[in-house]
Each structure stands twice: as structure tokens, then as C-alpha cells.
Design a protein around this nucleic acid. Structure first.
Length: 280
DNA sequence: CTAGCTTCCTGATAGC
DNA sequence: TGCTATCAGGAAGCTA
């Protein structure tokens, strides 16, 4: 199944939703499923959020944040199947709608999430960010600090497979299983390779590929709010450009060999055995 | 510190 | 056709 939101998709959601919430006041907070509120307790969450004005939206890795008046912030992680939709109240309701914000323009901001892995956090100004790992998040893929030297410093002593380390949000923020496959394909590195075996040239290839690929995906998945709403907030993902993820058994777009699939540290990896040579 | 496993959760799909 | 089993995965939490 394709559709997990990673950084480029979260950025699409941010850019589409932001103009639909900026300047609006949260007039009512309906918590339909308390499980999606991670912090603080649901009642405090509801009380604090009610009446706040939304000044804008931001993103850090895969985390969305709503900037509120007074410097408070509402964070949201979509995890696997979370969806945001800004729509009039007459818009058809959906199963698995867990949270609704009634906005001052008459529209609703709805949070829909079949698997309920996604979470909200309300962090008041000056309050420590009660999101596990937030302070330890690594640089954005497009951050100029993400250099070959940085990657080498962080990973060159590590025996674990490079694919797994690309998912480590303290190394780089925002990469998941889809784009780690795509990045490794572009950089011609087998996902099974222990980090300690990567060459100088391969670290450079990674440092070059990561920002280029993520930038491309962000740009390629630009979409209008109308298109987003027409697809129920679902049809915005950039699957036409994926070269290996979801294409196991098909031909490598570079050399024609059959793409292979295997489980690497509990995740499905897809790669080209000819272009991305396995370790001995 | 790392490695490896489990948990959460439902929809899509494969197999019979 | 209809049932059941398996798989999908981000991140936390646990054990050794």
C-alpha cells in the first residue's frame, strides 16, 4: 500500500491547509476520540485550544505545527494514515474522524485517521516540548548542515544497515520507508550495507541525493486546495515518481534487472540487485 | 550503548 | 463468492 506521509507529503498538507486556517479562530474543539490527544489531557487540550487564533503553519520533519496567538503551538504527527481536511460542515462525514476544529470562517478542520496512530500535542509558550525526541530531531533533508562529513561523523562507526539509519529521525528528520528506498536507489547503495562499509564517494552521493530527491518530491507534489479537497485529502501523494518503492518484481528503470524485495530490520526494502550491489 | 522484538490499528490483498 | 490470514509501517517502549 502506498500513501504513508513522509516529509514531502506532510509539506503538501501544510501548504494546502495553511491558507485555509491562517487568521481563523478556533471556536470549538470536538475531541471525538481522546486517544489522538497525546498532550496534555484531553480536557485541558480542549480548553486551551478553544478561542485561539491560528497565525500560520510550520513543519519540522514529519511533524506539523499550528502557530497560535500568544506563541502557543498545536503539533500534529500524521503517522501512517492521518489526514487533515478543511471543509464546510455540510461536507460528507467520514468514518474514523477523531477531531474537529470549528473555525471562525464557518469551515471545519477535520482529522481523520483509520489506524489512529497519529497524535496531537498542545504546547504552551515557554512550556517544554512534550514530544518525545523533538529536541533531538536531526537536520532537515534540505538543511545545508546535512553534508557528507556530517553523515560520516554520525554513521561511519555504525554496523547497522544504512536503510535503517536513514529512518533515524535524530540523523535526518523526515525520511521514512518510501524515500529511504528511493534515496538508496538514486545513490546506488544497497539498503543492506552496514554503514561502516560505505565509501567516501557513497557518503558524498547520499549527501547530494537526499536534498535533491526530497526537493524534487516537494515541488512535484504541489497541488491546489481544490484538488486536495476533491481527493478527500488522500490523492495528493507523489506516487508517479517513485522508481523502486512498490515496484518489486518490475524492471529497474536504470538497467532493466528485476527489482527485489526483502525485509530489512522489520521494514520492506525494494532495490535493484544490479545497480545496488549487496555486501559480501 | 546497541540489537531485536512487540505494540498500536484497520484496510487492502492474497490464499483457500 | 466468502471467509480468514497476512501484511503495511512510524515511533515508542521494552528486554537483554
Amino acid at each position: 500500500m502506498i500513501g504513508m506521509p513522509e516529509l514531502p507529503e506532510v509539506e503538501t498538507v501544510r501548504s494546502v491547509i495553511e491558507p485555509q486556517v491562517r487568521g481563523r479562530i478556533v471556536e470549538e474543539v470536538k475531541v471525538l476520540n481522546e486517544r489522538v490527544v497525546a498532550y496534555p489531557d484531553p480536557e485541558t487540550f480542549r480548553t486551551r485550544l478553544t478561542g485561539r487564533a491560528i497565525a500560520g503553519m510550520d513543519r519540522r520533519g514529519k511533524l506539523l505545527s499550528f502557530l497560535l496567538d500568544g506563541g502557543d503551538r498545536l503539533f500534529l504527527h500524521l503517522r501512517m494514515t492521518g489526514r487533515l481536511l478543511a471543509a464546510p460542515p455540510s461536507w460528507p462525514g467520514e468514518k474514523h474522524t477523531h477531531l474537529i476544529l470549528r473555525l471562525s470562517d464557518g469551515n471545519e478542520l477535520r482529522y481523520i485517521d483509520p489506524r489512529r496512530f497519529g497524535r496531537f500535542w498542545y504546547i504552551a509558550r515557554g512550556e517544554p516540548t512534550a514530544i518525545t525526541g523533538f529536541d533531538a530531531l536531526g537536520p532537515e533533508p534540505t538543511d545545508e548542515r546535512l553534508t557528507a562529513e556530517y553523515l560520516k561523523d554520525r554513521l561511519a562507526q555504525c554496523r547497522r544497515p544504512i536503510k535503517e539509519m536513514l529512518h533515524d529521525q535524530t540523523v535526518i528528520a523526515g525520511i521514512g520507508n518510501i524515500y529511504s528506498d528511493e534515496i538508496l536507489f538514486e545513490a546506488r547503495i544497497c539498503p543492506l550495507r552496514p554503514c561502516e562499509t560505505l565509501t567516501e564517494a557513497e557518503w558524498r552521493a547520499l549527501a547530494q541525493t537526499i536534498p535533491r530527491l526530497i526537493r524534487f518530491e516537494i515541488e512535484a507534489s504541489r497541488i491546489t486546495p481544490e484538488e486536495y479537497l476533491a481527493g478527500q485529502g488522500r490523492e495528493y501523494r507523489n506516487t508517479p515518481y517513485l522508481k523502486v518503492y512498490g515496484h518489486a518484481g518490475e524492471k529497474c528503470p536504470r538497467c532493466g534487472a528485476a527489482l527485489v524485495r526483502a525485509t530489512v530490520c522489520g521494514r520492506t526494502a525494494t532495490w535493484c540487485p544490479a545497480c545496488q550491489k549487496a555486501p559480501d
